[in-house]
Nucleic acid binder design. Structure first.
Lengths: 130, 130
DNA sequence: ATACAACTTAGAGCTGACTTCAAGTCAAGA
DNA sequence: TCTTGACTTGAAGTCAGCTCTAAGTTGTAT
């Protein structure tokens, strides 16, 4: 798979894919003899995982550290798990705080619904009895 | 209330408060005759609201537009509501996507739990029957 | 063979959201 | 009154995370 195909498959720019690879987020992308990227299933799996984690807001730096540990093999399993557990905690807190903001937004919108409705009723009454 | 007190009350830097005011996110901050900010309750209310919305990820630009409409009075109520409704939709989608990433993170962590447990069992067996 | 799109790299540039700086003003305590 | 620290401004700097550019190479269709 070329970089363009991968970029279309996952909805991410080819530039970003190259950037991710350069910063160590996507290991072992195969190349053709001419030096052109030729993603296999493993590489695609990494791309998908990294996109998902970036979407969750894990910093590029943290992911790059995680991938480095992966490459070092089994002995780093505990450390890798710890990274994910920490990031999960932060993610949970973020989701909670977003839900709180969502509540507030809902409340505000409700308020607008009320005042807009009220204004429309007033307008209608004005028309009915001039 | 001085800018410092407000900054401590809401856990945001004085620099950020000035920046928000300059970009139109916080209207009508009163000043002392000497030109020093002296936040009243209304201004604090705005600060709190803006921090909450920024936390939800609403862009500074959108909030500045919203505040501008607020200043223009009642006639902009519908437009303001529409801004909030749009932003709410985006927020809902973001929360959903974060929850999906959280699921994936949980799955991954579970997997680590298993392999780490397995490794520890193997290690223990190795000690028990050498 | 030749055109032409898609690929390669290093490195510069952009965006959003602050954050810091420089140079000066204000205000409360000794 | 003088010092000290908090405040003021506009402008420049920083940071993460891309995004674009330039100059050159690869690969495919005619």
């Amino acid at each position: 798979m070329t970089i363009k195909q991968v970029s279309e498959k996952y909805g991410i720019s080819a530039d970003t894919l190259r950037y991710y690879e350069k910063t160590g987020l996507i290991p072992d992308v195969p190349r053709t003899p001419g030096g052109i990227r030729d993603y296999d299933e493993t590489a695609c799996g990494w791309v998908e995982f990294i996109i998902c984690m970036r979407n969750a807001g894990l910093p590029v730096e943290v992911l790059s550290k995680y991938v480095e540990l992966c490459k070092q093999g089994d002995s780093t399993a505990k450390e890798r798990k710890q990274i994910l557990v920490n990031q999960r905690q932060q993610l949970i807190e973020k989701i909670e705080s977003l839900n709180a903001s969502l509540d507030r937004l809902n409340f505000k919108i409700n308020y607008y619904d009320e005042i807009i409705l009220k204004k429309e009723r007033e307008l209608k009454n004005g028309i009915e009895k001039p």
